[in-house]
Design a protein around this nucleic acid. Structure first.
Ligand SMILES: [Zn+2]
Length: 209
DNA sequence: TATGCCGGGTC
DNA sequence: GACCCGGCATA
């Protein structure tokens, strides 16, 4: 029963030490808009915005610098011999047509064990299935999924554009008016009172919009 | 789920 | 045409 660790455990164990970097490449975004580098603190995904239009290597160096600074700044009270950090990144291509929202920095560069998202994920992760982790990020639904099949330290991110409103599938079809038609006024039991079109299931002529 | 109605059928 | 109905979109 214990010969294989659960996916949650598989992720939890190495994440004590490593950081997961996720690089987002935005192919069709406005050139002026910057890309998002996602710096993940364990399961709590944090976002560093404002990175220059980046190649993965550029982004990588950014994150390495960031991680180095973190080590120098935080390790003063630590043993000092136990802060080897590994960086991994994966890329997710997303198509965006509007500028990215500014994500807060509240989760940025925080130790995994202090990260509320990470702890929440831990508390949720008692099961054996690696489900998607939803990251609250303003209006942009960002979700991370840990696939048991892929490498342990890789987290896949997906960002989908917010669906604003609904485009009618058929422009020709008239959208339903708010006026009550014969069917609703007289009811099914008084169908003889309906107008002819309503009887024929056509557009009502008595209570036109 | 109920309503409105388009498209298409039959007579 | 008149009449009916399946099926779809939408509230
Ligand atoms: Zn009517």
């Amino acid at each position: 029963m214990q010969e294989s660790e659960t996916a949650a455990e598989a992720v939890r164990r190495p994440l004590r030490r490593c950081r997961v970097l996720v690089c987002l490449r935005l192919p069709r975004i406005d050139p002026g808009a910057t890309q998002l580098g996602l710096y993940s603190s364990a399961l709590g995904l944090a976002v560093t915005s404002g990175l220059q239009p980046a190649t993965p290597s550029r982004l990588m160096s950014e994150i390495l610098t960031l991680g180095k600074r973190r080590n120098e700044g935080e390790d003063e009270g630590m043993a000092g011999d136990d802060h080897e950090e590994e960086f991994y990144y994966t890329e997710v291509e997303i198509g965006l047509t509007s500028p990215l929202p500014t994500l807060s920095h509240r989760d940025m560069a925080r130790p995994a064990h202090e990260d509320p998202e990470y702890q929440k994920a831990l508390s949720m992760g008692s099961g054996n299935t690696a489900g998607p982790i939803s990251i609250p990020s303003n209006s942009w639904p960002v979700s991370a999924a840990i696939s048991p099949s892929c490498s342990q330290k890789q987290i896949k991110l997906s960002v989908s554009a917010p669906s604003s409103g609904r485009v009618p599938s058929s422009p020709s079809r008239r959208l339903r008016g708010d006026t009550k038609k014969c069917r609703k006024v007289y009811g099914m039991e008084h169908r003889d009172l309906w107008c002819t079109q309503c009887k024929w299931k056509k557009a009502c002529t008595r209570f036109g919009d």
